[in-house]
């Protein structure tokens, strides 16, 4: 079942925020892979794959929402009754598939970023977690907040991991990273309440702030690297 949480006045901004998030995530992916090619550090490869999966998830939701909003705008010309029917009761497979991909890749990507620092890499755990990710993505198609709760839990674990890293290295960039993941987690808490359209808008704005911090980290790393060289 498709559910449109975005208020009409926010539909374009909504997609723009996701396009921005996609670009930032793709940049992280490119940097990770570029660094991996030079250093052969497998953790960089894993980090890159994690960011790549989340960026693909963003792309899936951008394309799905774009088509969905476009379709809704077209139908809107024929009257409000048809709009409501299309938004709430449509069962079109491509949209379901698009949102499923978004959920699956987001959870998969976050899980990889979380696993990155775990020393115990039991293959059975990975298989079991993959199964739970698929189940959470499928359940999220029927009960939307199941997905957001799962993301919130994963982000909580990631925040805890990176906070420990910050305690050790005291790097300002890591502190920014923790803040960014924290804001993203607060955003997810708002998405859980997406039935209230304003909560969805706040969630999206928090996501924008979070990705702006991610972008600031990239700029800072490049600037510091450059100044250390000179």
């Amino acid at each position: 079942m498709l559910e449109l949480f975005s208020p009409d006045w926010f539909t374009r901004a909504d997609i723009l925020i996701e396009v921005f998030s996609f670009i930032v995530l793709l940049t992280f992916f490119i940097i990770s892979i570029k660094n991996y090619k030079l250093t052969k550090n497998k953790k960089l490869l894993m980090l890159g794959i994690g960011f790549f999966l989340i960026s693909i998830a963003e792309l899936a939701t951008i394309l799905t929402k774009f088509v969905l909003y476009y379709k809704t705008t077209l139908i809107q010309n024929f009257g409000n009754i048809i709009v409501q029917y299309s938004s709430l009761h449509s069962s079109d497979l491509p949209y379901d598939l698009g949102f499923f991909m978004y959920k699956l890749f987001t959870l998969g990507g976050l899980y990889i970023i979380y696993r990155l620092h775990l020393k115990n890499r039991n293959f059975g755990d990975v298989i079991l977690s993959a199964l739970f990710i698929i189940i959470a993505s499928l359940a999220g198609q029927m009960i939307y907040y199941v997905f957001h709760i799962t993301v919130l839990v994963l982000l909580g674990l990631i925040i805890s991991e990176y906070n420990q890293i910050y305690e050790k290295n005291k790097s300002k960039n890591t502190k920014m990273l923790v803040s960014s993941f924290f804001i993203l987690a607060v955003g997810q808490a708002f998405f859980i309440l997406s039935n209230l359209k304003i909560a969805y808008v706040i969630g999206q704005l928090l996501q924008l702030i979070s990705y702006l911090i991610f972008l600031a980290i990239i700029i800072k790393i490049n600037k510091n690297g450059w100044s250390k060289r000179n």
């Binding site: 940097i31 030079l38 953790k43 990176y162 890293i165 290295n169 990273l177 490049n222 690297g225």
Partner: peptide, 18 residues
């Protein structure tokens, strides 16, 4: 180029603790 990017790589790895 590797030499140029080395500090950036170090900074990136330090940020993510890897």
């Amino acid at each position: 180029d590797f030499s140029t990017n080395y500090s950036k790589i170090i900074e990136f790895e330090k940020t993510f603790g890897i």
